[in-house]
Simulated assay, not measured.
Amino acid sequence: MTVNFGTAASEFGTLVERVPRGALDGPGLGEWSLRELIGHTSRAISTVSDYLSAPEPATSTVHSASEYLEVVLRQQGDDEAIALRGRAAAQQLGDDPATAISELFGDAVRALALADPARLVAVGSDGRVAMPLREYLRTRVFELTVHGVDIADAAGLDWTPPSAHLIDALHLAATNATARDVGVEALRMLTGRRPDAGLDGVLAAGR
């Protein structure tokens, strides 16, 4: 199964439309309010058109979505900077996040329609990370899927992402766990070998 950025972004926009206005300034994730969490997640859409407007880099430095998550975010992530960008994005969305996100989605769709699917994109403000567009879009679907679940949980909404997106997110998360040397523990939790974690496990019956 393959992921589809357009589907993921559209599903996210529909989810945000369902979020009660009165919940936006309530708890979201960590130190973020729900509004700020939505703002952070909206960057999974806005960065597509932003990065496609920049010149194409000559060579790639990161070759896959899993490498991006394993190496770039783990080694270069700045939690404070990420939190501030989320807050800034929330302010840019204004009082009607759903409408603003629809406009961002339109910009991204138009940019993708004009782009060569095989091109590279420079990621980040410094442009030091360059990767294939198709793999960058996978990371955007990952963000929209994971944070979509976070948003639904914070807002008390029932929401399930497309199965292909959920499977790919699980694959990328498992790859990242393995890179951090906690893959065995992640497998134990998922398969019910850690009942204290609150998971019966998908393979609990096979114990």
Rank of each mutant, 00 (worst) to 15 (best):
E135L: 04
A152R: 02
S66E: 13
A100L: 02
G86Y: 02
D107Y: 04
L52H: 11
A65H: 05
F5C: 02
L93Y: 00
D95Q: 13
A23I: 08
G124Y: 08
V16A: 07
F5H: 01
S102Y: 02
P20L: 08
V184H: 11
W32A: 00
H40Y: 06
R35G: 05
D158M: 02
D107S: 14
P117C: 11
A197E: 11
G39A: 12
D181I: 00
V19M: 08
L37E: 06
A130V: 11
W159D: 10
E135I: 04
L137Q: 10
G198P: 07
G94F: 08
T145H: 05
L190W: 12
E17H: 12
G13R: 07
V146G: 04
I151Y: 03
A155G: 09
V121E: 10
R35W: 08
V149D: 04
D196Q: 12
S66D: 06
T41D: 12
P27T: 12
S53H: 10
G192E: 04
D150A: 06
L203D: 09
W32S: 04
G22F: 07
Q75L: 14
G86T: 01
H171I: 03
R194Y: 02
E185C: 00
T175S: 15
Y68W: 06
P117E: 09
T59Q: 12
S46K: 12
F142S: 03
G148W: 09
H147D: 07
V123D: 06
E135F: 04
Q92E: 15
T2E: 14
R85V: 01
G86V: 00
L120Q: 07
A179K: 08
E80L: 10
S49I: 02
S33Y: 11
L120R: 13
E36I: 01
A204M: 00
Q76G: 07
T139E: 03
A89H: 06
D50N: 13
H147N: 10
T2I: 05
R188I: 02
S60H: 10
G198W: 04
S102N: 12
V16F: 06
F5L: 01
D78T: 01
V19T: 09
S163M: 09
A58N: 09
D153F: 03
P195C: 05
R18M: 06
L166T: 12
D50K: 14
L199K: 03
W159E: 09
